[in-house]
């Protein structure tokens, strides 16, 4: 047993310290101009994608369900939280929200984020129910349909801008804010999956009937996985809306859901570490291609549109599926994420 300092193990402290170190490094590079604001923005988006990938991994990778409408939950979180903050910003125009020192503004933001997460969790709870009767591909279609329905609904609600999207969202999300929330989300999900509840989820993935017949309430756990996964997706959606200052129905389409799915698969089903690395790698790859491909086009004197980026992405997905045996991490975790007492008998086989 490791020494407990406020119930936090030494290893977890090391993990947090390491992450904070990286944050400081980024802030330092940004201050000295080595990292442009553009790079910091990509890091912001990567961090948000980390939350999305890890939370989808909880549903697909750990519990063995098959959800491909994850951005639907993010949309719910984004619209909910952004509606609250824009409303309050309108009612109390004197609060300078965008300043970090303004505590009131941030309290409002955090509460709005939580609300967004909770509403998304409520939707996740409902979406969990079809998972009780449906498996695999059928469930995939239902979740896909759900994502599209959510989008259609936001597209048709005038109060949140309809097809124009919700504009003028106050910019609350910044690197530090996103970093802290991402870190907390990752730790929460890590704590969950390395617990007895996490093992219950894994057993559903491994063999649902056997799981039920060793006493796991599989109904409850499947719905729990959807609820918790949706909660964090909602938080991520809220963070993103307050970073980009817009919530638009097309932001939460099928494509983004698939990108998150690729992150989960590329990183390894059931590996938090893998999802983190893949979220960063693929976000940077995507942004890199956005600049590299037109650059390449300039060299070859042809115009290369954004579509080629998606061609590369989809080829990547096919190649991963065709050649993967254990992509990136497989089911392994980095040591810092494995609790000391699970050193030998975690699922990192």
């Amino acid at each position: 047993m490791g020494k407990k300092i406020f119930f936090i193990s030494r290893r977890m402290l090391l993990f947090v310290a390491g992450a904070l170190g990286m944050l400081l490094l980024v802030l330092f590079f940004n201050a000295t101009g080595i990292f442009t604001d553009y790079i910091v923005q990509i890091i912001n988006i990567s961090l948000i994608n980390v939350i999305l990938a890890v939370s989808l991994n909880l549903i697909n990778g750990f519990t063995g369900q098959f959800s491909i409408g994850h951005m639907g939950f993010a949309a719910v979180g984004a619209y909910t939280s952004a509606t609250v903050t824009t409303l309050i910003a309108k009612v109390t125009p004197r609060l300078p929200y965008t300043e970090f020192i303004n505590i009131n503004g941030y309290i409002v933001f955090i509460l709005a984020l939580l609300l967004g997460g909770i509403v998304a969790a409520g939707i996740g709870f409902l979406i969990g129910f079809p998972s009780l009767r449906l498996k695999g591909d059928y469930l995939a279609i239902i979740t896909l349909g759900f994502g599209e329905i959510i989008r259609t609904i936001f597209n048709n609600i005038d109060y949140v801008g309809g097809p124009r999207g919700l504009l003028g969202i106050p910019k609350f999300s910044n690197l530090i804010m996103i970093f802290v929330i991402t870190l907390l989300s990752v730790i929460a999900i890590r704590n969950l999956v390395f617990s007895t509840h996490g093992r219950a989820l894994l057993s559903i993935r491994e063999n649902e009937l056997a799981s039920e017949l060793v006493g796991v309430n599989t109904v409850r756990y499947k719905i729990t996985a959807f609820t918790i996964g949706a909660f964090f997706a909602g938080i991520a959606g809220g963070l993103q809306a307050h970073l980009l200052q817009i919530a638009h129905p097309t932001q939460y389409g099928f494509l983004y859901s698939i990108l998150v799915l690729i992150m989960v698969y590329a990183g390894g089903m059931g590996s938090i570490t893998g999802s983190i690395i893949a979220a960063f790698a693929l976000t940077f790859l995507s942004e890199g291609l956005r600049t590299a491909l037109p650059g390449l086009g300039d060299l070859m004197h042809v115009k290369i549109g954004d579509e080629w980026r998606m061609v590369v992405y989809s080829l990547l997905l096919i190649i991963i599926m065709l050649f993967r045996t254990e992509v990136l991490m497989g089911m392994r975790e980095m040591k810092l994420l494995v609790p000391e007492e699970e050193e030998h008998h975690g699922q990192h086989a």
Binding site: G136, G305, V311, S314
Partner: peptide, 21 residues
């Protein structure tokens, strides 16, 4: 089966974007 399902999604995306590219 889910592997081929995801591959199918990839193939679909590939065809669509390749055509529009």
């Amino acid at each position: 089966r889910l592997s081929s399902l995801i591959t199918a999604i990839g193939v679909s995306m590939f065809i669509e974007y390749f055509f529009s590219a």
